[in-house]
Design a protein around this nucleic acid. Structure first.
Lengths: 122, 122
DNA sequence: CCGGGCAGTTTCCCTTGCGTAACCTGGTGT
DNA sequence: ACACCAGGTTACGCAAGGGAAACTGCCCGG
């Protein structure tokens, strides 16, 4: 293995900074359902502001994970879609999100238990 | 599916906040190699400060993803290990890190290409 | 007695993330 | 002429993130 994520100098750390981004994960995952327009993404991912969305999209495009295609419709529409590289990444992201949805209850229970014990100790 | 990560109100978003954390991902992944002591983690994950490590560990413990076991040795040693829930999560995290290490080169190339075009346009 | 290792906690402080909201461009309906 | 759509960019400002480094407490070896 040429790279080692445990090393601070490893460029893979930079990738991790992008992947370890809540919004990026959600955007990427949403794009697995097909090419999507800017405002559609904004509407569907609740809590995501215009500014942050445009930043995230720019970063993902720069990383070669998504493509930005402009259509000369009226008004102009812009579609974002996964590249091959992006698809290959989302194959790994999807399970993570599904895990989060599936194991929510156990985590909330663990948190409640932890907080209870902490309160008791104090 | 009871939960929907696209909704801002979904508690799974909270989980995503933890999962979408560079340091947490690295710590979790390191623990798949077995129980590890505090300073061992700190040394092995370069760039990770004491403060951040202790914060991350506390959060992961609260989430029920890792256990903290104190041994009455001299000096006292503390071992962190994955719980069943944690193991099940890392099963999804590992591929992500491996993906980052594997596809680094393609991403760097994409970034260089993007920056080149940007410079040309300006 | 001093330094050093373990396992943290705390303080300081600077950078960044991100929500809010206004503004911009360009074309279209009314 | 005016407002409105899409798709952004920019300015503002707070609050959280996280690095550096000092401090605690305990015990060991030299």
């Amino acid at each position: 293995m040429a790279y080692d994520v445990y090393s601070a100098e490893c460029p893979a750390r930079a990738v991790l900074d992008h992947v370890g981004d809540k919004w990026a994960l959600l955007v990427l995952n949403r794009l697995t359902q097909g090419a999507t327009r800017f405002n559609a993404l904004r509407r569907e991912i609740s809590g995501l502001s215009q500014k942050v969305l445009s930043q995230v999209l720019k970063r993902l495009e720069r990383d070669g994970l998504i493509t930005r295609q402009v259509f000369a419709t009226v008004p102009v529409t812009v579609e974002y879609a996964l590249t091959g590289l992006g698809e290959c990444l989302t194959a790994n992201v999807g399970p993570l999100l599904r895990w989060a949805e599936t194991n929510m209850d156990q985590i909330r229970a663990a948190q409640a238990e932890y907080d209870r014990r902490l309160a008791q100790a104090a």
